[in-house]
């Protein structure tokens, strides 16, 4: 049997980690969570997820800037990184471009979350 793919979520808000984890696990994927922008690179390199969801508003280091930092790692150049945020879409669209994310998912839109994860990871 093929090993299920892994999604890693980085968010400082426990509520959002819990809900996103539950929703994505129900699709049959493995979900790893991390609750701070710090040591994210280390964790991502270790876990090597198939997709990363990054919250934007976090203490000290916003997720969009964190995205650029992850991207600068040679091993993480091709990993799909999506901003997962409650910010306005307009701002997210700009951040995606500026910080080399693959896209964004609006928090609260459950079906968009499921759809995008399945699109990126396949069934």
């Amino acid at each position: 049997m093929k090993k299920p793919k892994t999604v890693m979520i980085i968010d400082d808000d426990e509520r959002h980690l819990l809900t996103a984890k539950g929703l994505i696990e129900a699709l049959g994927y493995i979900v790893e969570i991390h609750n701070s922008p710090f040591r994210t690179t280390e964790k991502v390199l270790k876990i090597k997820p198939d997709m990363v969801l990054l919250d934007v508003n976090m203490p000290a280091l916003p997720g969009d800037r964190l995205c650029a930092i992850l991207r600068s790692e040679p091993d993480l150049e091709d990993i799909p990184i999506y901003l997962y945020s409650a910010n306005d879409e307009e701002i997210l669209r700009k951040s995606v471009k500026q910080f080399q994310a693959d896209g964004y998912i609006c928090k609260g839109n459950v079906s968009a979350l499921r759809l995008r994860v399945q699109q990126v990871l396949g069934d």
């Binding site: 808000d13 959002h16 809900t19 996103a20 409650a86 910010n87 306005d88 928090k107 459950v110």
Partner: peptide
Amino acid sequence: AHVTHELRSPITAIVGFAELMQM
């Protein structure tokens, strides 16, 4: 931008937990 985020954040949690509990 601020208020948008502040409003959406708890709404996201509410929607998420409701959906999760339903499942």
